[in-house]
Amino acid sequence: MLGRSAWGIFWMARYLERAENTARLLDAGFRMALTRGNTVASDEWRSVLVTLGMDDGYTGDMSGPAITNWLLRGAGNSGSVLSMMEAARTNARMVRTAITREVWEVTNESWMQLQSLLAKPVKEADLGHVLDVIRRQATSVRGAMEGTMLRNDIFNFARIGTHLERADNTARILDVKYHVLLPSAAWVGSRLDNAQWEMVLRSVAGERAFRWLHAGALDPKGIAQFLILDGRFPRSLTYCLRKLTSNMEWLCRDYHQETAAYRMQKEASDRLGKTTITDIFEHGLHEFITEFLATNRLVADAIAADYRFTE
């Protein structure tokens, strides 16, 4: 396959994943705003911006409607859901011959639907619906990929994009929220805390899974362990790294060439496999996340170079 196509499908998958993650974060923030006071809500909105790395570019007020509209459809905001869906669609169009008709159509349709849905500012009353549509779209594209695409290098590049982006997202959420998960925080156990924890879980669609695994009990260490180390949860760091490693391993096998990026990735994944949550807290949750994000970036760059994404 063309290096440019690998690059295109990798980014198509990343943009789709990022659009979905943004919608989940907005959903969690929205819920927080509905159930808590204004001050808490505006703190939450700020942390949503920080998590997405978009606090610098944002100049509007810290109200829910302003921020949600900026993140969904802000003019000139290249990180908005609409821009990302457009970027995903442009990439899909560029790699049209590398994806199936189903994958292309559902991506194209999603973009068309979103364009009309986000043609005007979204009212608070419609926000739930809009976010729901975005999540469904992500699910449809994933379904089309899983159901129709050949399991070849093209597919693996797409999955690598998805897992890298997802790992990044979960890690960034943890990075912004790590303080509420620290056992040393003074106000552990307050009502606000519970809400914060639930927000973290909701933003990675993990609230149900966590409840189910922990019989409804919320505790910060448990949540951190769940999001970082529970290999059963598809948005945990361990899960993403394992998948990433296996996608990369697949490529090395198929190409008869073990790359430096793969060795780095395998090592990171193996290391995480031997780590306990106590280790992480002792080392420092924030430090752990910072290192994790840095390795992720290195791997992404190495993949682009190894597989000639650009000249």
Partner: peptide, 25 residues
């Protein structure tokens, strides 16, 4: 797509060892 051929752009191509080549993975 229908022919199972690669869809290339100029940026993918270069003359290497007397042949026109495409940059693949």
């Amino acid at each position: 797509d229908q022919m199972g051929a690669e869809l290339v752009e100029a940026a993918d191509l270069r003359v290497v060892d007397g042949r026109v080549c495409m940059r693949t993975t």
